[in-house]
Nucleic acid binder design. Structure first.
Lengths: 335, 335
DNA sequence: CCTAAAAAATGAAACGTTTAATCAAAATGG
DNA sequence: CCATTTTGATTAAACGTTTCATTTTTTAGG
């Protein structure tokens, strides 16, 4: 019960000190559990503070200490279903350590990305968790010595949390081969981001080795697959698809169905990301799972450690992926 | 070009004043475009500030003025696909006015909701955009005089942005009737939130009037529909479903398909929310669209207005919904 | 007991702003 | 040309903390 004793406004440290009959300094020491203050006084101050419902003014604290206990999360696109789970876990992990999170979404624009970073830095965030749009280090001149954790992308200057996409790409390809497919198409996302390239390149490599690569489509963006490819598939150029992102895979499924092809009876598909949609689709999308929840948590852990020890050597964490089988893989249709 | 003249640390107002050969006060006045400062000096100060790459320390400004130009966004669950688009637009609209947004996700727990609000208030946010878990005013004792904008839910103390769910519920029911259905089931979400109740109640009302209500299932939560209902539908108790949320509708479709029923050939379905998944499904989910983007924008506009004029009379904005036809509505199967 | 050391408590400066209260200089009016 | 107003600029206080340097009180040692 935080009752409000003094009229109206929030009690300040001075109020607490006054009410406890002690100096402001002592009150501060007592509340922060530092300095040398007697056990009795400490308890008393704490008690009074609780009674008054005292909450430190974080702006003041921030100004004095230079630490805001806030961090920024910069994401390319919140509406991409890959990100909300990440954001959620970042926010929660941060709260565990009494940090709050400014979330910004840059809509895939480098300009917006810089503006967002600027704003956050000016706000004095203690650190940034940054999922860059592509591999360009667009914030190089802004971040200064600020702790930054980079997600998924590459960056020579910051701590990194990455994903072992190579193994994911391989898993997908191998699974399709094991199912008996010998004409497999690969569809990949934006080629200007390493992690996206790697996904499909590792698939391609495996497929080549088995002489099972039908074709490779680059830079598939949104979720309607190019009609050309759909037609190619319809003509039987491929009996299975290795797709670099679930969103694209779902689009591909749609396109195929609109052309009368069944999934997985006529063509098998494996996606990448394990976005929640996939589980909801019918049949469920088989895909490569990225442990995005753990990544979120580990991101704030790593960032907070870096904030605490700026000099520690650079860290690079790589998360494993797993294949999750649902309903979009089957043997190729009998010819 | 924000080059860094003084060694290392960010330049402060004092640095600017010094470099411009003017008092700190004048520098402040000049930069904020207030007070009486000569045209020449003003220009000069601005120029110097730009040259030094000066950025005001927002913590300091906040402490002095009591305004942080930050707001908090409290959502029940970021991974519910309804919310990311909302969050995105809130963040963008806020940035337009140089506000930053603390985003928190309360996982449907009232405890977490209170904790989050506490933290944000302590941080000194200028206002809160709050999508409550249900209709309980769980923050009543915390918010004090703080401007709060409540989304979707009801609340006697705050500005409101709501949705005309009644008309949505009616639209859905009418559409199914128009398609020829006469045995229609209604599935609704949590009954402890008014807006959820209203969605289905308005459907029910219309269906009753046409004597077309087959049954009404309350409190359907996650996305697998109760086997009981699925069986009931399978037995032909209903040829169409009016569902209170897309997420539930998609689950329903899955369950039906697993029992061998086709959508929409055997049973038609209309959802509610128009979450992005719906468009990706095959066939696309017919649903009621909520203009969530506009709502996000209007939420920050209304909140910022309230922050500027705390005394203005309470506002309540109601957004219209629209029916979006995709592929899940068809005439009932011939008996 | 007295002194020295340790512990507890305090005063005041500092953080980077804004802004009220002054003051000086320039402009205005009679 | 003096008195008055306006304009331009400055000084200093204030916001709520933390923390250094200092003082006061207590404890311990001989």
């Amino acid at each position: 019960m935080t009752k409000d004793e003094s009229g109206g406004k929030r009690p300040t440290l001075k109020d607490v000190a006054l009410a406890a009959g002690v100096s402001v300094a002592t009150a501060s020491y007592a509340l922060n559990d530092v300095g040398s203050v007697g056990g009795d006084t400490r308890r008393h101050v704490l008690e009074v503070a609780a009674r008054l419902g005292y909450r430190p003014n974080l702006s003041a604290k921030a100004m004095r200490t230079g630490k805001t206990s806030a961090i920024g999360l910069i994401l390319p696109d919140l509406t991409n279903p890959f990100f909300p789970a990440l954001a959620q876990n970042v926010v929660h992990a941060a709260r565990e350590s009494a940090y709050s999170v400014f979330v910004t979404d840059t809509q895939g624009s480098h300009e917006a990305e810089r503006a967002a970073a600027q704003a956050l830095i000016q706000r004095g965030v203690d650190g940034l968790i940054w999922f860059p749009i592509n591999d360009e280090d667009t914030l190089a001149d802004l971040t200064g010595g600020l702790p930054v954790l980079v997600l998924d992308r590459d960056n020579p200057r910051h701590d990194l949390i990455q994903i072992d996409v190579d193994s994911g790409g391989r898993m997908a390809a191998e699974r399709l081969i094991r199912a008996g497919h010998r004409r497999i198409g690969v569809i990949s996302g934006p080629t200007d981001v390493r992690s996206s390239r790697q996904r499909s390149e590792s698939s391609v490599e495996v497929l080549r080795r088995h002489d099972a690569l039908a074709w490779h489509l680059h830079n598939a963006y949104s979720f309607d697959l190019e009609p050309a490819v759909a037609a190619a598939v319809a003509e039987g150029s491929a009996t299975a698809l290795c797709v670099g992102a679930d969103l694209i895979a779902l689009g591909a499924i749609n396109t195929l169905r609109q052309r009368g092809l069944r999934v997985p009876e006529d063509v098998s598909i494996i996606g990448f990301d394990n976005i929640p949609y996939g589980a909801l689709a019918f049949p469920g999308l088989s895909t490569i799972n990225i442990p995005v929840e753990e990544m979120g948590i580990e991101a704030v852990n790593t960032l907070l450690r870096r904030i605490a020890k700026p000099a520690e050597s650079r860290r690079r964490l790589v998360f494993d992926v797993t294949y999750v089988e649902r309903g979009t893989v089957a043997p190729p249709p009998a010819p």
